[in-house]
């Protein structure tokens, strides 16, 4: 069990930057939805490196993404 990234949708949709999705080291993990106008995390694939938080918070001085401890359920 480890931290994963979570996008704060309302905050993210204020911008149109997609920068975090580019800097995520994991493929098919941090994606963007044009319909809802924000990034989103496929939590199963997130390894919790927090680079996206560095990009969003430290570089871009925004607060649209943070790390959380996900709920883990037993397999289907």
């Amino acid at each position: 069990m480890y931290y994963v990234a979570e996008v704060i949708n309302e905050e993210c949709s204020k911008y149109n930057c997609k920068q975090c999705t580019l800097f995520c080291p994991e493929p098919n993990t941090l994606m963007y939805t044009d319909e809802e106008h924000h990034a989103f995390v496929v939590q199963e694939r997130c390894k919790g490196c927090a680079l996206c938080v560095y990009v969003c918070v430290n570089l871009l001085k925004r607060n649209a993404i943070h790390m959380i401890m996900p709920e883990v359920h037993a397999e289907r």
Partner: peptide
């Protein structure tokens, strides 16, 4: 690239 087993945050995977 589907998924990989490199370390979390590895710049090589970027």
């Amino acid at each position: 690239i589907e998924e990989h087993s490199l370390c979390a945050g590895c710049p090589e995977s970027m």
